[in-house]
């Protein structure tokens, strides 16, 4: 079953074709890796998928529904959540509140019941707390729940960002360089976490990564992008041994 089906999307900034007829099909439950040299347009693809940029052409289908040209908020509601290359946490808020922000659209009560502390406030907050702690437990962050998120060590900030994205209950999770800046043991831990969330949550994952060990270790399929165009696409062992790919990464 197709979870995400992207057909020939593209965007240009001035004369630069940042992404040119990019097509990818991701099946439900798959873990797809998106790799490519610096400036290949990987993050632009993420920005196109999440509605930060509107594609000049092409079509994006999520679980059969057309989400091309929708706003970021609507796309998130449709079921795509993402993390960022440079961590974007709510730094002055607690770890718990960061996750509860992710629950914003799933558990609702009006602003008035928040201000006047009506019963629906207490009811919903209780459910939200339980849910947030459940998610934090998966990431082993429950002890830091009351910490200011800016005070977490780097690896845990990355995890918290994934936790917050997962809290929106996405069908498709986009991870933008989740292992960037991590040491080998942190990367190992992250791989274990990604495997765990796939098992626990019914979620399809597309990730950008430069760490080949991680990509080869957990990705089921790999897509290689170079100068906005597809270079290779398929199983890891085929793609990573493709002479074109090696050339793009290492030069001739």
């Amino acid at each position: 079953m197709e979870m995400l089906s992207v057909k020939n999307i593209g965007i240009s900034f001035g004369g630069l074709h940042a992404v040119d007829s990019f097509s990818i099909t991701i099946n439900k439950g798959e873990l797809y890796g998106l790799i490519g040299p610096n400036g290949a347009g990987k993050t632009t693809v993420f920005n196109l998928l999440t509605g930060v940029y509107k594609p000049d052409m092409g079509q994006i289908l999520l679980d059969g529904a057309n989400i091309t040209g929708l706003s970021t908020i609507e796309i998130n509601k449709a079921g795509i959540a993402r993390t960022f290359q440079n961590i974007r946490l709510f730094k002055n808020m607690s770890v718990l509140d960061n996750v509860k922000c992710g629950l914003h659209n799933d558990y609702k009560y009006s602003s008035a019941s928040g201000i006047f502390r009506l019963p629906s406030y207490y009811r919903t907050e209780k459910i939200m707390n339980n849910r947030a702690y459940e998610i934090l437990e998966v990431f082993g962050l429950e002890k830091e729940a009351k910490y200011l998120s800016a005070n977490l060590p780097y690896g845990k900030q990355r995890k918290l960002e994934i936790a917050r994205a997962l809290a929106t209950d996405p069908k498709l999770l986009l991870l933008d360089e989740p292992a960037a800046g991590m040491n080998p043991s942190e990367t190992e831990e992250l791989m274990a976490t990604i495997r765990l969330i796939r098992k626990q949550y019914d979620v399809t994952i597309l990730l950008i990564e430069h760490d080949m060990k991680l990509v080869a270790g957990i990705c089921e399929k790999i897509f290689v992008l170079n100068f906005g165009i597809e270079l290779a696409n398929g199983l890891p062992q085929d793609v990573l041994n493709d002479p074109e790919v090696i050339k793009a990464y290492l030069g001739e």
């Binding site: 999440t50 974007r88 808020m93 509860k100």
Partner: peptide
């Protein structure tokens, strides 16, 4: 409350706030 968290999320990082809906 829920609204207050949304307001502070916008203050701390509006791009991330938008990305979580």
């Amino acid at each position: 409350s829920r609204s207050g968290r949304a307001i502070m999320a916008i203050r701390d990082n509006h791009i991330a706030a938008e990305s979580i809906g």
